[in-house]
């Protein structure tokens, strides 16, 4: 769980900086928008960030292994459409349909896994292909036009109502967050993921079951994307082939903002959660500050660069000092 032994320990952890950013954002928007700090708005925040948050959670172990999954947004769309199809056309009740959808998500993740772990193809290319394939299947199944709607109220409860005081989907989000956190930070599996991110070949030679690890990571990603699809459908009360367009980039943004290194090996689940929070608060708060939506995009870009620079600056600094004084060993 410690950062790379090669890099000097930074004065402040990335997560601490990010926490400060989140708090600052909160204070700023609280000052700007009188209704920003209300309980109701906090619930809106939770509701609106649940799906992106889930995808970001799924993406974290993937990126920790040094991989990437560009297909999650498309898979969300495909799963939403298939869920609608199973419920309306196959006549399944929502719970069964949701269970089947989760299975399909895992299966689709399995396709990524087979190509990445089995054929050892680069994750970027494979998921670029499935990004197009999954969205294409969603469009082909619905012919682009079909929209699933009029879901029963009991199902919509999942996305629009509260359970035990919190928006229903927040409980799912919390459960997945806890599970992924435990998996990444408290199991040997999580350690192995980081190890693979640091040194893929080394991990292989060390005798770790790299293939099985990667398979698990991508299947998990598909499974969580399917869950996000079900929650998305419940929140909107409709499922269509364009659901989740562009979510993969938002999820990656959140993960990277959370301090996970895109090269793998370094990062944390709580960092990802903070990254999700930072982006969600920015998007929501700017509406309360009555700024147009483009500003949110601009500031997301700026925040990303700043957070990144904040993480790298100390290392650069140290490297420069090390270069000035003769290094004890080769770098």
């Amino acid at each position: 769980m410690t950062p790379s032994p090669a890099s000097p320990r930074p004065a402040l952890r990335h997560e601490t900086v990010l926490l400060a950013v989140v708090v600052l954002e909160w204070l700023c928007f609280h000052a700007l928008g009188p209704r920003f700090g209300t309980l109701e708005n906090s619930f809106d925040l939770l509701r609106h960030s649940a799906e992106i948050g889930l995808l970001a959670l799924a993406m974290t172990p993937v990126i920790l292994t040094g991989g990437i999954d560009l297909s999650v947004g498309s898979l969300l769309g495909l799963c939403a459409v298939l869920f609608g199809k199973l419920w309306r056309d196959a006549g399944l009740d929502p719970a069964t349909a949701a269970a089947c959808t989760l299975g399909i998500g895992a299966l689709a993740g399995g396709l990524n896994a087979a190509l990445i772990a089995g054929l050892r193809l680069p994750p970027l290319i494979v998921t670029l292909g499935t990004y197009s394939l999954f969205r294409g299947l969603a469009e082909a199944i619905t012919r682009g036009a079909d929209t699933f709607t009029n879901f029963p109220a009991a199902f919509l409860f999942l996305g629009q109502e509260r359970w035990l005081g919190l928006p229903t989907q927040a409980w799912f989000f919390a459960a997945v967050a806890a599970a992924v956190w435990l998996l990444v930070h408290r199991t040997t599996f999580g350690c192995a993921c980081r190890a693979h991110g640091f040194a893929p070949e080394g991990t292989r030679y060390a005798g770790l079951p790299v293939g099985r690890q990667l398979t698990a990571v991508y299947v998990l990603s598909g499974l969580i994307a399917a869950l996000a699809a079900v929650i998305y459908t419940a929140r909107l009360g409709q499922a269509r082939a364009d659901a989740g367009t562009g979510y993969e980039l938002l999820a990656i943004t959140a993960v990277v903002l959370g301090g996970t290194s895109i090269f793998g090996g370094r990062g944390s689940v709580h960092g990802t959660l903070l990254g999700v929070a930072a982006l969600a608060i920015l998007n929501n708060g700017l509406v309360h500050a009555r700024q147009p939506r483009e500003v949110a995009g601009l500031l997301t870009g700026a925040l990303l660069l700043l957070a990144l620079a904040a993480g790298t600056a100390p290392r650069l600094w140290a490297a420069r000092r090390a270069r000035r004084s003769p290094a004890p060993s080769s770098p």
Partner: peptide, 13 residues
């Protein structure tokens, strides 16, 4: 962007 959920988020805000 084109995601259909975005309009809902703005209205709820």
């Amino acid at each position: 962007d084109t995601d259909p959920a975005k309009q809902n988020e703005i209205i709820e805000n």
